[in-house]
Every structure is written in C-alpha cells, then in structure tokens.
Design a protein around this nucleic acid. Structure first.
Ligand SMILES: [Mn+2]
Ligand SMILES: [Mn+2]
Ligand SMILES: [Zn+2]
Ligand SMILES: [Zn+2]
Lengths: 124, 124
DNA sequence: TTGTAAATAAGAATCATTGCCAATTATGTT
DNA sequence: AACATAATTGGCAATGATTCTTATTTACAA
C-alpha cells in the first residue's frame, strides 16, 4: 500500500503524511512499520529521500533525475524536469574522476503562485 | 568568535562542532547563543545552511556558489568549484521565469580516498 | 499440528533544534 | 556614580522526527 500511495505522487510526502494515509485502511499500522518499509524501499532503489534544510525527510517515488524548486513562502516543492537539469548522474568531475551515483539539486525561489499573491496556506 | 571559527573553514561544521570550539575560550557559552548567532549570521547572508539527508545542519561560511561532493563511505563533504557547477544562481527556468535565489547541489559518490581504501574514520 | 523465522505494534529512547524566562550585561541619561 | 532601560545570554525545559527495543503476532514449512 505504501508503494501505491507513492506511485505517481508528486507531493513528496513525509513519513507522517504516509502514515496518515495508511492508517485510513490499516488503522493499527505503526510508525515503525512505515519507517521500516520506506527504508527498505529506499535501499532497493524504489524511493529517494530528500531533505530540505533541517525539515522532515520527504519520500520521492520518482527516481528519474530531476531538480526541486523550493518556495520559501509556501514551502511547496515543485519538480523541475528542464533539460538543463536532466541526467546529471552521468557527469564526471575532473578532480574526482569517478562516477557520481546520485545528484540532488535544490533551487530556492518564490514560486509563481506566491509571486502573484495567490498562494494557499503555508505548508508544514 | 563564531565568525572567526568559520572564516576559511571548509569542514562544514555543525552547531555542536562550533559550540565545542567556542567553549574552549568562553566556557559558559550556551547552545542557545550558538544557535541564535548562527541564525543571525545566516539571516544577514554571512552563512548558508546545508543539510544532508536528515543529518544535522552544517554551517557554510563560503557563500560563493559551489556544489558539495558527499562520500557515502566516510561522510566527508568536499567542496566542488568546477566551472560546470559554478554560478548557478543566474539560471532561469522556463516554466518558472523568475530568478532563483539560491541553488544547492549535492553529488553523492565514493570519494577518491575511500576508493583507494585509505579513508579515515567514518565521520559522524 | 508444531516449531521457527519474519514482520509488526507499541511505546520508550535519542538527540538536534527551539522556546522560555530569569539573570546578566550593555547603553544612555541625570 | 546611580539609575533606568534595552539587549544579550545561559540554563534548561519542550518539541518533534526518527530510531531502538521488545513482546506479540503472523507467515511459512516440516
Ligand atoms: Mn521530485
Ligand atoms: Mn562548501
Ligand atoms: Zn509558493
Ligand atoms: Zn570517503
């Protein structure tokens, strides 16, 4: 069920978010099981973790390379698949001539909605 | 003194690291003061915060744009100033045609030392 | 059916960070 | 100097996400 929740989900939910959804169908599910399952799915490569500046860890079902746009005003996280940012994992660095396994790119800005003054409630 | 500790420091120390150094000279310094000072210095643009996958927040005195190479084996964080990664803040994205204020790029790999099997103790 | 291994739930423990407030220190004014 | 007032600080409690522990339940196989 946790995989189903995350499949196609672009909201980057936290363990708490996922737990809230799981308990609607399996009310006794514990945080341990949610964390254990998310850890296992991460280890087998189904999920990525992303962590923005000391906040909670978010779980990312989309393991295709993409960047994240972070709105300081509303805390929303928006996927960015612009070609400019795509496929960074094949890059090499001269000083460290070995392959980079994973790249995370976070772009801080004020999102389009917030710029127009029509953002919703600030997310946790 | 906190600014002095961080000036030219490329180890990306945590609040705890900084506190440990401060108390050698000012033994009564509290965590509150360390955190408050770091927050203030961040707000005035002297420092950046970086947070790697749910670990503690590290403080970055070098606000020039650069990426961070993260070794999964030894947890070391290495600055990358390769031209490829430099000056990302001037980029714009078509979908969100406003300026991006800050970019953080984290590159996960096994560092050169660890590849050669001569890495030191794994850092916290 | 019975024994064993794996998965789970419940809650305690951890620990970085924040919040609170009284005590201390700095600053400015008679 | 003496006082009033504002800002900073230190100590410690509170918070909250994550991890750990352990007993219980479930799955599986002999
Ligand atoms: Mn994403
Ligand atoms: Mn750096
Ligand atoms: Zn926004
Ligand atoms: Zn290493």
């Amino acid at each position: 069920m946790i995989l189903d929740i995350l499949e196609g989900n672009t909201t980057h939910p936290s363990a708490n978010d996922i737990h809230k959804t799981v308990v609607t169908k399996y009310p006794t599910t514990s945080f341990s099981t949610v964390y254990n399952t998310l850890e296992m799915l991460t280890n087998v490569g189904e999920l990525d973790k992303i962590c923005i500046l000391g906040n909670v860890i978010k779980y990312e079902p989309n393991t295709d390379p993409h960047a994240h746009l972070l709105c300081k005003k509303c805390n929303r996280i928006i996927d960015i698949f612009e070609p400019y940012y795509a496929k960074p994992s094949i890059r090499k660095i001269k000083q460290f001539p070995h392959t980079i396994e994973k790249v995370q790119e976070f772009l801080y800005c004020t999102c389009a909605s917030c710029l127009k003054g029509r953002q919703g409630k600030k997310l946790a």
